[in-house]
Amino acid sequence: MGKVYTIHDIAIRLNISKSTVSRALRNHPDVSKETKMLVHDMASKLNYQKNILASNLASKNTNLIGVVIPEIARQHFFAQALSGIQKVAKEHGYIVMVCQSNEEFLEEINQVNALVNSRVAGILISLSKETNDYKHIQNAQDRQTPVVLFDRGTDKIEISQVLVDDYKGAYEITNHLIQQGYKNIAHLSGPMSLSISQKRYKGFMDALKDAGRSTTDAYVLQCDNLSLDAKEATERILGLKKRPDAIFCMSDYMAIQVLKELKSNGVKVPEDIALAGFAGDPITEIVEPQLSTVEQPAFDIGVQAAKRLIMEIETDDRETLGFIHKILNTNLLVRESTT
């Protein structure tokens, strides 16, 4: 059997960097046509294409990008974010491999370790609700696998993140409810292990405080199982002697469950209780009444996260490149459920 040539061999013969060879082989737009011709000619001479699998293993690099998300079946947000990731990956010659943690920390660890062992070029992660330790992510970075967090981030490790302004979005929709004249606003939060839950809760509380409302008396119910706990939370709200006149849910899917429960109990929205969510899911326009919500730029989050990851994959000096913390704006959508 003849010698198995790698990207390194092509780079040495052409006196260019391995990253340039890699981009040229993937037809990356940043590489000139002349360089691409030289690289492909040399690859042909060395029979590189015939041994591409061995080359990937030898260089510890593939054209695969791993994506780990909590779930996709009930989450329009992640479907849109994946579309953005796929668009950018395709433009740069990468293939996307999607894994679901199912909101389980151990499953997230297993998925990340499997992707690293498969020698993916990089990993995009939206953390599970159970994630409170980041050794598996640090391990991926230590093994020279770039990782970028999106949507759900953390300040516990040094890592690039692409997030939305959860605090501002929650503040704005709570302030909208206050401006509409609602006096007793309840909040259904998510698990406080999630940074998005923490930020949306703080935005809610600060909006009340800035309006001169009592935060001590604010009625907050934590839904650790997200939409699964929304039904029980609504039942508790309806059992109160002094019912809230408005409810802000930390997600649209929770708000849909609340709306269903309110209707089944003969409670009119917004006449009896106003209702708002967070995400901008298309279903909020279909239900009756249409739900006010905070729209997240899901597709753009995917685009920006993928662009950053590819930048970290393809840089020749990752240490100098450093890390970024990018925050994208949300958009308040006022509809029938709060007016």
Rank of each mutant, 00 (worst) to 15 (best):
I157M: 02
A233V: 03
N102L: 14
H28E: 07
E172Y: 01
L57A: 09
A89N: 06
Y182L: 05
H28F: 09
V334M: 07
H40Q: 13
E312C: 02
I310W: 06
T131M: 08
A114Y: 01
N61E: 06
H136Y: 12
L221F: 14
S32T: 04
M254V: 05
I52Y: 14
A246D: 11
Q304H: 06
E71S: 11
H28K: 13
N61D: 03
E34I: 05
L14I: 03
S59W: 00
R23M: 09
Q304T: 11
N132V: 10
A218D: 07
A81Q: 04
A255K: 11
V147H: 14
V294L: 12
I301Y: 06
L259M: 12
E261H: 14
V164W: 14
L309A: 09
R243I: 09
D229C: 05
G122V: 01
A246W: 05
I85H: 10
K268T: 15
A230N: 10
L46H: 06
S19E: 09
L208I: 01
I109W: 03
E158V: 06
D217R: 11
E107A: 06
S19W: 07
S251I: 07
T35M: 06
T145C: 15
A186V: 05
T284W: 06
V31M: 00
I109D: 04
Q304G: 02
A114F: 01
D210Q: 10
R318E: 10
C223F: 12
I7Y: 02
I65V: 08
E312F: 05
D151A: 10
P270T: 05
N117Y: 00
H187E: 03
H187T: 01
M254L: 09
Q86F: 07
A186R: 10
S193C: 12
L333M: 12
Q111R: 15
S189M: 04
N47E: 04
S264G: 13
F78G: 05
D217I: 00
T284D: 10
K183D: 03
T330F: 12
F77W: 11
S44N: 13
A73S: 12
Q86Y: 08
I95G: 00
D272R: 09
I327N: 13
H76R: 13
D281W: 07
D142I: 06
T131R: 05
E108A: 01
R13H: 11
T145G: 10
